[in-house]
Design a binder for these strands. Sequence first.
DNA 1: CGTCCTCTTGATTCCCTTCAATATGAGTGG
DNA 2: CCACTCATATTGAAGGGAATCAAGAGGACG
Lengths: 242, 242
Amino acid sequence: MGRETNAFVDKLRGYGPLGDEDTAALEAATARSRSYPRKHDLIREGDRPGLLFVMLKGWACRYKILPNGTRQVMAFLMPGDCCDIPANVLAHMDHSIQTITPAVVATISQADIEKIFDAYPRITKAMYISQLVDEGTLRAWIVSMGRRTSIERVAHLMCELYLRARSVDSSEQLVLPITQALLADALGMTPVHINRVIKALREAGAMTLSRGSLQIADPEKLGHIAGFDENYLHRRTRSATG
Amino acid sequence: MGRETNAFVDKLRGYGPLGDEDTAALEAATARSRSYPRKHDLIREGDRPGLLFVMLKGWACRYKILPNGTRQVMAFLMPGDCCDIPANVLAHMDHSIQTITPAVVATISQADIEKIFDAYPRITKAMYISQLVDEGTLRAWIVSMGRRTSIERVAHLMCELYLRARSVDSSEQLVLPITQALLADALGMTPVHINRVIKALREAGAMTLSRGSLQIADPEKLGHIAGFDENYLHRRTRSATG
DNA sequence: CGTCCTCTTGATTCCCTTCAATATGAGTGG
DNA sequence: CCACTCATATTGAAGGGAATCAAGAGGACG
């Protein structure tokens, strides 16, 4: 087979120059991957961390179940994203990670991460920057939850997911694997109210969500409703890296 | 004068072993610091980033003003915390940073950061981990905003700030520089409602907030109300580094 | 072809916001 | 030392947005 693109390598390359030996090391580290069905927990709250998960295909999310039984989703992971909790700092996971779609994910052991960090400073730096960008996404999320109306909130998240998905899959008509229940868990709302908001967005001609997949009818309109400023995503044009 | 403790070095040392040359480099980089009054913007939304801010004394916060005029605070910065947006990835700041108290902060230029990253891999790694920990704090914040009641939300934030403040200042009776308006901006609520929640917490004997400073009367009770699990703060015992 | 998951809609309730008025203390200047 | 001003805190009343409760429709799947 030909050389398959590795979403993780692509992403890191966007954050800093990588040499051939860097990409080779990354590809070697993520060579062994596993497939998982949807709704499969990759790691659960309370587990001992220690592996770096690298999403190669499919989506996942970080979430936490609260004592009252409600669920909060804190992040969406797409191809190229990775998640890492350093085992030497944290004894137990404070949240879980679950696939949203069937997914292919590679895991890198703590020892191998250490080796890579020691031997490939450019990788360390790129991952540091990747971390900074992820943090910006979380901050934007906090802003949404704190100060945006529910319709703005939904529209804003859809804009973010649309742009992020688009940078790993440039299909013409993107379809995002989102259910109303998942949206509710991500935005701290009830499924019932999410449904009403989505109806409003549908009637406005901005987007349609049905049976687990979302279609953006009018990205411009959606962005306008959300008051969206894509600056925070820190996306770079991909053309330079091709 | 004797050797003053550098909160930044102390914090990073908690995340990984640093050699004498590492700490020397960090101390040299943060040697030149400036004092700022309270409510002073260190950097504003729209500015070009490029400096690494290191809080040496005092508190600050990240915030964003939305088009409708409301403000959302996304993070509190305490001595030892730093904030960094890589200039080569982000053209303009997507939020501002402002001091909450009079503060002493050092700045490191982009060029010097690069040099440090290239020459001191242990520092890079420690900062990467520091970043991971900060991200955990943001995730906890999202959980609070999404799925906790207002009283739990206030109590939870107070627990977090109390523990974080305590790890840099072990005074017997900690007093946190928080106003009701600031709390409201941080938790996405109105000052009026914050006031009512605080009244409830006061009457429960958990904590008291008055005229810009907060006292925790009963940390245990507060933690119980919040459903607080300090796991996510990834704090380590400081004794080992003394 | 029944079961389950996802989505939809209506009615009611309640938490929080909004609006408004007042209190209280800190800082300032005469 | 006191009047003045401003930021902060407090409390009440009314309104609205989202949750809750409840019932049902429509596919997907075995």
